[in-house]
């Protein structure tokens, strides 16, 4: 506890850096996964290919990806952009599958009835299919958010500023409290973001709660 109180400012600034890496990656992987997932859900032949590619992406260890990506993209190893791109790739690996499943889960009767009502194809996607895919999309997004926040810490091995530096520093200097603080701060941050997503989902999808009543 003493270590935490003495280093509140450090913990605060690392938390902010952590969020600045994690949040853009989470948002980007969600936004990019939607069209890919839609494509996989509507073009049966592409589904297996896209999902296998996404799965293999996940098998790449994160640390070498952080290191190798700059040699391909021309960033510096410690650039925020480098970390965000790598995290976005991992997020995509999880989110494409969720998006494909979510959009495929919208029942045929609802598609049919909205067509019969006179929705155009685009209108049907934005006003019927996307909202109805919402609950499954949200479940996928929650997994992506939590694992991204946890994964950010690996980049600290390269000296990138985030909560993971507390592990590296604490381990090298033998300060148990520092490592423990890093773990707890990361988990708490992940759970807070997760809770915020749940609240956002309730606000945007009131019908899911009504049905359970």
């Amino acid at each position: 506890m003493g270590w935490v109180l003495a280093n509140l400012e450090l913990i605060g600034s690392r938390t902010v850096s952590h969020l600045l890496l994690a949040v853009p990656a989470i948002v980007l992987s969600f936004v990019l996964a939607l069209p890919l997932g839609w494509f996989a859900a509507t073009h049966q032949w592409s589904r297996a290919t896209l999902l296998t590619a996404a799965g293999l992406l996940y098998a790449i260890p994160s640390l070498p990806l952080f290191v190798v990506l700059p040699t391909i993209l021309g960033f510096g190893v410690r650039d925020a952009a480098n970390v965000i791109v790598a995290l976005t790739l991992y997020g995509l690996a999880l989110m494409v599958r969720s998006a494909a499943d979510a959009l495929a889960s919208v029942g045929a009767p609802v598609r049919l009835s909205s067509t019969a009502l006179g929705y155009s194809a685009a209108g049907r996607f934005w006003q019927v299919e996307l909202p109805l895919a919402g609950p499954v999309l949200l479940a996928g997004l929650r997994v992506v958010a939590v694992s991204t926040i946890s994964l950010v810490t690996v980049s600290s091995l390269l000296g990138v500023d985030n909560l993971g530096l507390l592990f590296v520093d604490g381990f090298q200097r033998g300060i148990l409290a520092e490592v423990l603080t890093g773990i707890i701060a990361t988990v708490v941050l992940a759970l807070v973001i997760d809770a915020l997503l749940v609240l956002l989902g309730r606000a945007l999808m009131p019908w899911t709660r009504a049905a359970r009543r």
């Binding site: 009767p109 609802v110 009835s113 019969a116 009502l117 006179g118 019927v128 109805l132 019908w207």
Partner: peptide, 22 residues
């Protein structure tokens, strides 16, 4: 098709209601 469908009423089995709309 789209304007045509909007001037013809359609009722189907299980109502085909949109579950996310009141």
């Amino acid at each position: 098709p789209v304007p045509l469908r909007r001037r013809i009423g359609y009722v189907m089995q299980n109502a085909g209601l949109l579950p996310h709309r009141k």
